[in-house]
């Protein structure tokens, strides 16, 4: 592992070849600040159907032991899919304006 992320690498510091030599490095890139609407998850109302989890394009619904534990605002872009598909009987996710 030779990648650096805290500063731009020089050409001599690049990993040999034309590749990113570790997986999932995008986790260092926070797309959460793209958001203008914020999903707010209500643990009381959630029925843990996981529909929001499987549909999230940004892998931003946190799950532990088959249960939803919250939303990862580091990556959530605020698209609102989760709120739109949350079963009406639960309505556990609400979209609110992102307060900057």
């Amino acid at each position: 592992m030779s990648m650096k992320f805290d500063k731009l690498m020089t050409w001599k510091e690049l990993p040999a070849g034309c590749l990113i030599d570790e997986p999932s490095t995008s986790l260092r890139f926070k797309t959460g600040d793209w958001r203008s609407m914020r999903p707010v998850w209500d643990s009381e109302k959630c029925i843990h159907c996981l529909f929001c989890w499987i549909s999230c394009p940004d892998s931003a619904i946190k799950v532990e032991n088959e249960k939803i534990t919250g939303i990862d605002y580091n990556y959530c872009k605020g698209c609102g899919i989760c709120a739109s598909i949350c079963p009406p009987k639960a309505s556990a996710i609400e979209m609110i304006r992102e307060e900057k």
């Binding site: 999932s24 995008s26 986790l27 260092r28 890139f29 926070k30 797309t31 793209w34 958001r35 159907c49 996981l50 529909f51 989890w53 499987i54 549909s55 999230c56 394009p57 940004d58 892998s59 931003a60 799950v63 088959e66 990862d72 580091n74 990556y75 872009k77 605020g78 698209c79 609102g80 899919i81």
Partner: peptide, 29 residues
């Protein structure tokens, strides 16, 4: 879904697709 939720993600967050992109959801699924 419960079983899938225990697997490692193949496509993680932090990518630069548009908000609401179905193609990212497709690849992830």
């Amino acid at each position: 879904l419960k079983e899938l939720s225990k697997r490692k993600e193949g496509l993680v967050g932090g990518h630069r697709a548009c908000a609401g992109c179905a193609a990212s959801a497709t690849i992830r699924q």
